[in-house]
Simulated scan of single mutants.
Amino acid sequence: MNTIERVEVLLPGKVEPEGLELHRGPVPEPGAGQLLIAMEATGVSFAEQQMRRGRYYDQPEFPFVPGYDLVGTVRAAGPGVASDLLGRRVAVMTKTGGWASHVVVEAADAVEVPVGVTAAEAETAVVNGITAWQMLHRKASVSAGGTVLVHGANGGVGSILVQLALASGIRVIGTASTRHHETLRALGVVPVDYRSGNVPARVRELAPAGVDAVFDHVGGDGIVDSWRLLAPGGTLVSYGSAATRDDEGSGSWPVLRLLGRVWLWNALPNGRSAHFFNVWAGRAYAKDRFRARLRSDLTQVFAALQRGEITAKVAAEIPLARAAEAMRLAESGTVAGKVVLVP
């Protein structure tokens, strides 16, 4: 008799991708208010890249199972959970724990995936889609006819963000390496080579009066240029510190530095505003509101995916057991879209 076992990828400490460990064990059972999900797709994001370096803000102590989000089928429901969820495909933001064949989650955190959307397609739109949607519509609130600058327009978040903006009638300037420019132009994005050394000058040529919003995942000292490119009344949304990915030392310092700059800029009487976006903001003290907003926004993202307003960009689908290979590929900077792990 064959027994189903749980397979998980463990991050034991600060290691190279090849240091990830594959563990096997019994499939867990869901408790009260919980679901057991058989994972069908989970992603490799910038968060996991930072976690393996010990540089992701508020990551758990080593060892732990990484995996920021996942998509899968509900296989069991704990006490107090409606049985009609059994057999349905759902998406969940987990922050950690997604890199496993079977995952127990709180039922209230699961959002149903529409029929016709594959697991890999849905996976590209979970944390990336929520981040893009909330930054564009809840933080920046740019009107049709406005202009925005999206750094990393070919990346996981950036590629969804530019499509959501274009669908809203917003002009998009996007930074990316030249190999991605043709794809961006086909979407309707005005591409700028981030390696040219004159990004601010080029953006000012394209938007002499400034841009209505800048979405910046790079951080570092370049965030100052993003602030200076804003038009009067414009909004800067910072959501990462990719520039410091390979730095040594505290992983909290780059975030704290960004928060300090945001506070200072918002104190200036110039009509512009700055935000540091954290997709988990509000969960600790307003969990029900957080969940309702996430459910609403992810439903909107999935609807945009169904309508074709955004397209799922799967860079590669790689088996969970080859997580090291997937991590290397995601960190290579050579892919467009999201690297997805599958069972």
Results as ranks from 00 to 15, higher is better:
174 G>K: 05
134 Q>E: 15
166 L>F: 13
135 M>R: 03
140 A>V: 02
189 V>T: 09
82 A>L: 13
87 G>L: 14
173 I>L: 15
149 L>E: 08
140 A>Q: 02
174 G>C: 09
109 D>I: 02
101 S>V: 09
107 A>Y: 02
87 G>A: 14
132 A>L: 10
72 G>H: 04
175 T>L: 07
152 G>H: 05
143 S>Q: 06
156 G>V: 00
168 S>K: 01
170 I>D: 00
174 G>E: 13
144 A>K: 01
117 V>E: 08
103 V>W: 01
141 S>I: 07
102 H>E: 11
132 A>K: 00
142 V>A: 01
75 R>P: 09
85 L>I: 10
75 R>G: 07
72 G>I: 07
181 H>K: 08
119 A>S: 15
111 V>D: 06
141 S>A: 13
83 S>P: 10
166 L>K: 13
99 W>Q: 09
141 S>M: 06
89 R>H: 12
86 L>F: 09
78 G>M: 03
121 E>Y: 02
144 A>S: 07
77 A>V: 14
189 V>K: 00
102 H>I: 07
161 L>C: 13
102 H>R: 08
135 M>L: 10
118 T>V: 06
172 V>G: 04
81 V>P: 05
121 E>L: 03
91 A>S: 15
155 G>F: 02
188 G>A: 09
131 T>I: 04
184 L>V: 11
150 V>S: 06
146 G>V: 02
117 V>N: 05
128 N>R: 00
186 A>S: 14
132 A>E: 12
143 S>W: 01
132 A>H: 06
189 V>S: 05
156 G>M: 01
116 G>I: 04
188 G>E: 11
148 V>P: 00
91 A>M: 14
162 V>Y: 07
126 V>F: 11
97 G>N: 09
100 A>Q: 12
149 L>P: 05
178 T>M: 11
167 A>G: 12
95 K>C: 10
128 N>L: 00
183 T>E: 14
181 H>T: 08
118 T>W: 04
166 L>S: 12
154 N>Y: 00
136 L>E: 00
121 E>W: 00
165 A>W: 02
107 A>D: 14
128 N>D: 11
143 S>K: 04
114 P>S: 10
176 A>K: 10
163 Q>T: 08
185 R>F: 06
146 G>W: 00
179 R>V: 13
109 D>K: 06
103 V>F: 05
185 R>M: 08
175 T>H: 10
164 L>K: 03
166 L>W: 12
184 L>N: 09
100 A>F: 04
154 N>A: 15
173 I>T: 11
136 L>T: 01
84 D>N: 14
149 L>Y: 07
101 S>Y: 05
160 I>H: 13
86 L>M: 15
84 D>H: 15
182 E>C: 03
150 V>M: 10
152 G>T: 07
86 L>N: 07
156 G>K: 01
117 V>C: 07
144 A>C: 02
185 R>W: 10
90 V>E: 15
106 E>W: 03
164 L>W: 04
101 S>Q: 09
72 G>Q: 06
181 H>C: 08
147 T>N: 04
80 G>E: 09
154 N>L: 01
157 V>C: 06
165 A>I: 05
189 V>F: 07
153 A>D: 11
132 A>C: 14
98 G>Y: 06
145 G>Y: 00
122 A>M: 09
102 H>D: 12
162 V>K: 01
155 G>Q: 03
73 T>G: 13
150 V>A: 07
170 I>G: 02
98 G>K: 07
132 A>W: 03
158 G>W: 02
79 P>M: 09
